[in-house]
């Protein structure tokens, strides 16, 4: 029996679900569907999170959510679609204001201002801002389940790699900073002076705490599930293999693969099937068998190709049903 219901029955303590994969393969749809199911059918308080600049959660729920903060779209179902660019701009402004306040300045030194502005151009800035927003939301602990629609940077797993890099980095600077402070303390004692509190170290510890808590949660396979969303196509298979490799390197357990856009088997029995579509389905069979062979039991859910776009709560409910309990006629093996 295929379907996420089985997975959640096996792992009742899951708090975070991440859908990763390339853009346009159904990540956002899967996220929305799972969130809907958990909120409406199981009565959990769910937060569905997306940063997709194409604003697809807005499309799915047919409401403008982009950059609007947390919005309740159905009972217990909360949705947030981060506008990372706006968040970065606000963050930069906050930093600038802080400098002005701290030193009682009228205006920022030119060099500092230029430096702050230049950071927006960094692609990594976008990732970190997203990551930070996620960490903040999870840290709040207000929801029973967090569903993340990972932005299409790489495979989304990069986020976890970054968590590790950042954590190691903060470890290093904290250490360097502590050692530096120790020598400062030495100099200060020798001079008979008093030690002053070190704001930087405090700030660093906070960042670090946030990161480690989040990373620990993300790498705990009892609490966090990662699903790769893919379609039965050659490129997607290759991508998913690569992603699996990355997961292994990061010591993260990949919970499963969600295969999307599958044509039902009995379609082939239809006599009036256009030749083009028949060819396509035959191709798909080949790919599905390959998926079966390569990912085996990892295949967690099968979602059919729908006759219309998955939009609106009604349609989402349908997708949710398929996601939780996959249709038998999609099993090609």
């Amino acid at each position: 029996m295929v379907g996420l219901a089985e997975f959640f029955a096996r792992k009742p303590d899951i708090e975070v679900v991440v859908f990763a994969g390339k853009g346009g393969l159904g990540k956002t749809t899967s996220s929305a569907a799972l969130s809907y199911h958990m909120a409406v059918n199981e009565g959990k308080k769910v937060l569905c999170f997306s940063t997709d600049p194409q604003a697809s959660l807005s499309d799915i729920f047919e409401r403008d959510l982009f950059g609007k903060g947390v919005v309740e779209v159905a009972p217990n179902l909360y949705v947030v679609e981060i506008d990372a660019d706006k968040k970065i701009a606000e963050y930069q402004q906050e930093i600038k204001q802080k400098i002005l306040d701290m030193y009682g300045l009228e205006e920022l030194p030119k060099e500092i201002e230029e430096y702050i502005d230049s950071t927006s151009a960094e692609p990594a800035m976008y990732e970190s801002a997203t990551y930070d927003a996620m960490a903040d939301l999870v840290a709040s602990g207000e929801y029973d389940l967090y569903v993340f629609d990972m932005p299409p940077f790489g495979h989304g797993v990069r986020m976890v790699a970054m968590a590790e890099i950042l954590s190691a980095w903060v470890d290093k600077i904290t250490e360097a900073r502590k050692e530096a402070a120790e020598y400062e303390a030495v100099a200060a004692t020798l001079k008979g002076g008093m030690q002053t509190e070190d704001m930087v170290l405090k700030e660093l510890e906070e960042i670090r705490k946030k990161m480690t808590t989040f990373t620990e949660l993300m790498t705990n396979s009892e609490k966090t599930a990662f699903f790769m969303v893919m379609v039965p196509e050659k490129m997607a298979i290759l991508d998913t293999e690569r992603a699996l490799e990355m997961f292994r390197e990061l010591n993260i357990e990949m919970s499963g693969v969600v295969v999307n856009q599958i044509y039902p088997r009995d379609l082939l029995n239809k006599p009036d099937l256009p030749e083009l579509l028949r060819k396509k389905i035959e191709m798909q069979e080949k790919h599905l068998l390959e998926i079966r062979e390569k990912f085996g039991d990892l295949v967690a859910a099968l979602i059919p190709m729908y006759d219309r776009e998955p939009k609106g709560l009604e349609m989402i409910a349908k997708v949710a049903e398929d996601l939780m309990h996959s249709r038998r006629d999609l099993l090609w093996w």
Partner: peptide, 25 residues
């Protein structure tokens, strides 16, 4: 490590180094 990219050594995403920036101005 925190402000390396100011000198052209990109070490980490600047998001968190910006948090430190005010203190080291």
């Amino acid at each position: 490590m925190t402000l390396g990219d100011m000198l052209g050594f990109p070490i980490i995403p600047p998001y968190y180094s910006l948090k430190i920036l005010p203190y080291v101005v």
